[in-house]
C-alpha cells in the first residue's frame, strides 16, 4: 500500500553517520565538493573513492546504493565527456579525422570533468541517504538563519518543506482514491496517445488541486489557532547539538582535503593525468 513508501532516498538505519549534526553534514558535503575541484590526478580521485567507501561502511548504507545514484546521470556524463573531448583544440593532437580532433589536453579535461560530476553526485547522495529530509530542512534553516538579516525566509522555507513532507503520503493516498473513483466512472488513464492521456488526467488533477487547496486553507487556520506567527520568538523541540563525532567527521574531511592538496603539489605535473 501507498502508506509504506519511503520518501526521498533516505536510508533509515541507525549509524554514527546518521547521527551527525545535519548542519555539519551539509557543510562537510560542501567542503568535499570543493575538494573534488582541487584534485589534480587519478590518485586524488582514488582517495575520494576510498573515502566515500569508508563513509558508506560507517553509515551501514550498501555501497551499490550510493553508486546507483549515478545511473540517472549517465547521459549527461557521456555528453560531458564527449563534448570536452571533441571541443577542446589545445594541446598535442592524438587523433585527427576530418573535423574531429582529439588532443591530449582535451582527453585529460573530459576525464576530469566527468569524474568531478560523478563525485559531486556521490557526495550529495551520501548526505541525502544518511540524513532524513526533515533533518536536512532543519540544518538548512539554521545554516541560512544569519541571512534573515537580509530578509531571506529561512524559517518559512524550512516550514514549507516540513509541511510538504507531512502531506505527501496523504496526497498520494488521495490520488489513488480519486483515480479509482474516476475509473469507476469509466475513466481510462492507460490507453491512447500522449495528448489523450494528458487530457485523461484532468478528472484526476482538478479534484486533487481542489482538495490540496482546501487542505491548505484548513491547515493555515489550524496553525493560526495554535498560535503560529512565523519564526520570531519561536523555540524548538528538535535542538541540534554538536557532539564529538561531529568533530571527528570534520577532522576526517579536513584530512582528506589536505591529502588532496598535497597530492596536487607533490606529484609531478602530468603524472597520471
Amino acid at each position: 500500500m501507498l502508506k509504506n513508501i519511503t520518501l526521498g532516498q533516505y536510508y533509515p538505519v541507525d549509524s554514527v553517520i546518521h547521527r551527525l549534526d545535519p548542519r555539519v553534514k551539509i557543510l562537510l558535503t560542501m567542503a568535499m565538493i570543493v575538494a573534488v575541484f582541487l584534485v589534480r590526478s587519478l590518485v586524488g580521485y582514488a582517495l575520494l573513492l576510498a573515502f566515500v567507501y569508508l563513509v558508506s561502511r560507517l553509515a551501514k548504507v550498501p555501497f551499490r546504493l550510493i553508486i546507483k545514484g549515478i545511473k540517472p546521470l549517465r547521459f549527461i556524463l557521456i555528453l560531458t565527456f564527449l563534448l570536452n573531448l571533441f571541443l577542446s583544440a589545445q594541446g598535442n593532437i592524438l587523433f585527427q579525422w576530418r573535423f574531429i580532433t582529439i588532443t591530449d589536453q582535451g582527453l585529460r579535461q573530459s576525464i576530469h570533468y566527468s569524474l568531478r560530476l560523478v563525485f559531486l553526485v556521490l557526495g550529495t547522495s551520501l548526505m541525502t541517504l544518511t540524513t532524513s529530509p526533515i533533518q536536512l530542512a532543519d540544518g538548512m534553516e539554521l545554516l541560512l538563519s544569519p541571512l534573515k538579516v537580509i530578509r531571506f525566509p529561512a524559517h518559512e522555507l524550512a516550514m514549507m518543506m516540513s509541511i510538504a513532507l507531512r502531506f505527501i503520503p496523504t496526497l498520494l493516498e488521495e490520488t489513488d482514491k480519486i483515480m479509482k473513483a474516476q475509473m469507476a466512472r469509466g475513466a481510462d488513464f492507460e490507453s491512447g496517445n500522449l495528448l489523450r492521456r494528458a487530457k485523461a488526467m484532468i478528472p484526476l488533477l482538478v479534484p486533487l488541486f481542489v482538495s490540496a487547496f482546501r487542505r491548505a486553507s484548513e491547515l493555515a487556520m489550524a496553525m493560526e489557532a495554535r498560535c503560529y506567527h512565523g519564526g520570531e520568538g519561536r523555540t524548538r523541540l528538535r535542538v541540534l547539538k554538536l557532539t564529538r563525532p561531529d568533530l571527528w567527521a570534520s577532522l576526517a574531511v579536513a584530512g582528506l582535503i589536505a591529502l588532496i592538496v598535497l597530492e596536487g603539489i607533490v606529484l609531478p605535473k602530468g603524472w597520471l593525468l
Binding site: 479509482k180 473513483a181 474516476q182 469507476a184 469509466g186 478528472p203 479534484p207 481542489v210
Partner: peptide, 17 residues
Amino acid sequence: LRMKVGLVFQYPEYQLF
C-alpha cells in the same frame, strides 16, 4: 462489466471536477 456495477466511494464529492 465494471459499468454494470456503480461504485460510489466514501466522500464522493471529492471526485467532482
